[in-house]
Amino acid sequence: MTETPPDTNEDQAEKAEKQAIRRRWLTIGELVAVAGVVIAGLTLWNGWSERRDAAATRVAEQAAARAQAEATRRRVGLIATDAGGDTLAFKGIECALQATDIRFPKALGVEPQFTVTVHEIQAGWIAKPLLALTDGGADRRRGRLPMLIESRCDGAGGPRLERAIYDLVWETEPGLLGRSLKLRGLVLREDKVGKDADARLNALWSRPEAQPRG
């Protein structure tokens, strides 16, 4: 019977190297598994974070849209209904206009006006100072006069209040007794004015020749 020779030093070294290789592969496999778990966790976190941010963005956008819709719904929004020249009639958009307070630039020297029941602007309120400022040159002139109008009206959802700056479109015409002032339109200029509304109104006014043409 032939006996198996004992392992040589070379065989023992080879076995040790193979065991070391197996241990290294095991360690690498464990690292790969751990990395996979970490990556999966990060992917889940990123997905949840993106969904959360998207949801927050949608909520903010919806809130802004609701606020804008409410602000629009609560606006009075004045529009001219008849520009006969000597007077300019106006009303609220989709609401029953109750009263308005109308103020003019301080430099014009025109007293504030108030309307109730009949809502119109009269050329006679502003004719004298505007004709004086436009005296000389062409008989026909056209421009805009900024006015601060505080309006109150009744509409869907209850009373509405608005403070806004409108441009009154005017023009001068020659006649047998001299030039006259005619009113031609009403244009919204700024609908978000605060406590400094009078200062803003005065800042917008300059001599008629520097005003935007109607």
Rank of each mutant, 00 (worst) to 15 (best):
P5Q: 14
D7I: 08
T8H: 02
N9K: 04
D11A: 11
K15S: 04
I21A: 15
R22P: 01
R22W: 05
R24Q: 15
L26I: 12
G29E: 03
E30L: 13
V32D: 02
A40F: 06
G41S: 13
T43F: 06
L44I: 14
G47Y: 13
S49F: 04
S49Q: 12
A56F: 01
R58W: 05
R58N: 07
Q62C: 00
A63P: 03
A64W: 11
A64M: 14
R73D: 07
R75S: 15
L78V: 03
L78D: 04
F90A: 11
G92T: 06
L97M: 05
Q98G: 02
A99G: 00
I102E: 00
Q113C: 00
V116I: 03
E120Q: 14
Q122M: 05
G124V: 13
A127S: 15
P129D: 02
L130Q: 06
T134Y: 03
G137F: 11
D139Q: 09
R140K: 12
R141A: 14
R144A: 12
R144N: 08
R144H: 01
R144Q: 14
I149P: 03
D154G: 02
L161D: 14
R163Q: 14
R163I: 09
Y166Q: 04
V169G: 09
W170T: 11
E173N: 10
E173R: 15
L183E: 02
R184W: 01
L186I: 07
L188R: 05
K192E: 13
K192S: 12
G194E: 09
N202V: 09
N202Y: 05
R207D: 11
P208Y: 12
R213I: 08
R213Y: 03
